[in-house]
């Protein structure tokens, strides 16, 4: 039984702003289905009475003092962006 449908992949692709052609969908749907199907084996384990675990390290309350550290040079930071406009990162317009 398949876990992932074509609609699921289209939905996630839309949320991630990725445009997928039909041919790509034909590749990704069975691939993702296989991956998630493999992971699904975990669901056969009984977790009755087990508290959900979000972290596995025996660690808590790691904080840092409220102090300033050096920042990245803005020129270096802006070089990482695909496009810039003066001191800003330039992106396609996001509001109509």
């Amino acid at each position: 039984m398949s876990v992932v449908t074509k609609q699921d992949v289209q939905h996630v692709a839309r949320l991630a702003r990725i445009r997928l052609e039909d041919a790509e969908l034909a590749t990704f749907v069975p691939q993702l289905d296989e991956i998630l199907g493999y992971v699904r084996q975990l669901q056969s384990v009984s977790t009755e009475g087990v508290e959900p675990t979000s972290h596995v390290l025996p660690l808590a309350n790691v904080t840092r003092p409220d102090a300033n550290q050096p920042c990245l040079d803005p020129e270096r930071a802006l070089r990482l962006a695909p496009a810039r406009h003066n001191q800003f990162v330039k992106v396609p317009k996001v509001i109509e």
Binding site: H85, Q87, F88, V89, K90, V91, K93, I95
Partner: peptide, 9 residues
């Protein structure tokens, strides 16, 4: 004017 937005992080 342009179809662009500018980001300050």
């Amino acid at each position: 004017k342009e179809p662009a937005s500018y980001v300050d992080f």
